[in-house]
């Protein structure tokens, strides 16, 4: 991992069109501003990982289970 030290309001540039700027530092919290092309997804990592995990779980569903669900709904 590349490690860079930056101060308040300083920026790093990634490639031609991604910039990350330190906007605010308070105690152990850092506010970052990211400017990137709109097609680049920017997420908090823990949320992204949770959604990825949930998608992987979802891909394991089988037809029989879903048929049972269908039947439960129908009987309600």
């Amino acid at each position: 991992m590349l490690v860079l030290t930056r101060k308040l309001n300083e920026t790093i540039v990634i490639g031609d069109n991604i910039e990350v700027t330190v906007l605010d530092i308070k105690g152990d919290q850092v506010r970052l501003g990211v400017s990137a092309p709109k097609e680049v997804g920017i997420y908090r990592k823990e949320i992204y990982l949770e959604i990825k995990k949930e998608n992987q779980q979802a891909s394991l569903a089988n037809l029989t289970s879903l048929k049972i669900i269908g039947k439960i709904i129908k009987d309600k």
């Binding site: 959604i51 949930e54 998608n55 779980q57 979802a58 394991l60 569903a61 089988n62 289970s65 879903l66 049972i68 669900i69 439960i72």
Partner: peptide, 18 residues
Amino acid sequence: SITVVPEDVLQIRTNLQA
């Protein structure tokens, strides 16, 4: 919404956040 259908089908859950 993408839906997880676990073995215990009554625990079916769906992702409203994404």
